[in-house]
Amino acid sequence: MKKFFLIIFFSAIVSSAQTDWVKWNAVQVSYEMKNNNELEQSVGFWASLQSAYKFLISDHDGDNCPFYPSCSQFYVEAVNNSGFVKGTLMFADRFTRDLNFFKGWKHYPVHCKTGKFFDPPYNYNLNPRSIQFLSAENSSE
């Protein structure tokens, strides 16, 4: 925990000194309020199936999945990126992990925008290089 705060402390110092280390331009900040519900969507055939699932079922049965991306989004992304067989195995594993009652106990990092457990499919494609490790005390963008 001490180390974690040290990292945060050092990065805060560095980031404040870094403001002008790269030339920047004027930025117009929108007055409009952000709509947290509009999360990024995948594209492709599976995404359209997911959209149909979302439109017909998921939008009406409440917010049930404690993960981000949700189980259905996870499945679509996994199949899109790793193929049907591997994606299905990844989904089966995710679904089983979802059934674990104690999953929130010091395990997953929290996704900032949604406040859910951050569990992206790229951590599960058996390619060690694609894993982006975040500790449970940490949180993601």
């Binding site: 195995l89 990844m90 089966a92 594993d93 089983t96 599960y124 058996l126 060690p128 490790f133």
Partner: peptide, 18 residues
Amino acid sequence: AYGGNIYGSAASAQIYNA
């Protein structure tokens, strides 16, 4: 569930190592 768990265990070991 069986297959997913075998797959997930290997993935879990990789995440542990990461």
